[in-house]
């Protein structure tokens, strides 16, 4: 098997249940080495739950979630960069201390983590902030630190959960540059995003998840072809719009209050 086609992530018959509620139903997909994979879906469709189960934060109810053919183990050999949806840092600690701490947790030596952190902070315009407390930084500056931590161990697999959520345009651009740079270096990227222009620009393949079920799965080109060459955003709205057939025809995929008004009239 060639390097490009070997699967880095394999999810087989994954089922996740919280109490009596099943949120993921028999989900299977794979992410190939070196590709950028868009893991898409509306809010509450089960994307973050899948990522958490993949990374061992949740225990799956059934099925297998493998990274490099093994269940993820914090002490394993795969170098992962994970940017979760819920973000934060140790607010009372100094920037450099926090970066070194995470670097060491990711298997770097103290010296290597320190060296990377200083270079990264200088590159993103945060030189001089090494000894500042995290809570003294602006929101945008904290995001930069968090991005640095995500990529500091030169990850072979980058998992990003809504990476641009809450990011200002400057940091969005920074993130995109980082992803492009890592892509060129052969890093496998799995990203959850609602930005469909990013998907078209960056992703090789996508999976569209709805209510825990895979609705579409394939290359961006094949999915677009299936929907008559529509842009990903239109396809997303088609699948997740929440607009019933009648309204969709009238509004051409856009939400309109007129349908609601009609329903109100009917009720009367």
């Amino acid at each position: 098997m060639s390097r490009e086609t070997k699967n880095v992530i394999e999810v087989k018959n994954f089922v996740m249940r919280f109490g009596d509620k099943e949120v993921i139903h028999d989900l299977s997909f794979a992410v190939k080495r070196g590709e950028t994979f868009g893991f898409l879906g509306s809010n509450g469709s089960g994307k973050t739950t899948t990522l958490r189960a993949l990374l061992g934060i949740y225990e799956p109810t059934a099925g297998e979630l493998l990274i490099n053919e093994q269940k993820y183990d914090v002490a394993g050999n795969t170098k992962i960069g994970y940017l979760p949806e819920e973000r934060g840092l140790y607010k009372k600690e100094q920037v450099l201390d926090v970066m070194i701490y995470f670097g060491q947790l990711k298997g770097m030596t103290r010296a290597a983590a320190s060296d990377f952190s200083l270079k990264y902070l200088a590159k993103v315009g945060l030189n001089g902030y090494e000894t500042s407390r995290i809570d003294k930084l602006s929101g945008g500056q904290q995001q930069k630190v968090q991005l640095g931590i995500t990529i500091m161990n030169d990850p072979e697999l980058l998992i990003l959960d809504e990476p641009t959520k809450g990011f200002d345009p400057v940091n969005q651009r920074l993130l995109m540059d980082i992803i492009l740079d890592l892509q060129q270096r052969g890093t496998t990227v799995m990203m959850v995003t609602h930005q469909m222009d990013e998907v078209e620009k960056l992703c090789d393949r996508v999976l569209l998840l709805k209510d825990g079920i895979a609705k579409e799965y394939g290359t961006v080109a094949s999915v677009r072809k299936k929907y008559g060459g529509k842009h990903m955003e239109d396809i997303f709205i088609k699948i997740y719009g929440g607009i019933d057939g009648e309204n969709e025809d009238e509004t051409n995929g856009h939400f309109s209050l007129s349908g609601l008004a009609k329903s109100q009239k009917r009720k009367k």
């Binding site: 958490r52 990374l55 061992g56 934060i57 993820y72 914090v74 992962i80 994970y82 979760p84 819920e86 973000r87 934060g88 840092l89 140790y90 607010k91 995470f102 947790l105 990711k106 931590i149």
Partner: peptide, 17 residues
């Protein structure tokens, strides 16, 4: 509690049990 309050726990748990 600090890890939860600061939303760090998810990142931490991918590096340590």
């Amino acid at each position: 509690v600090e890890e939860k309050e600061n939303r760090v726990s998810e990142m931490i748990l991918t590096t340590i049990k």
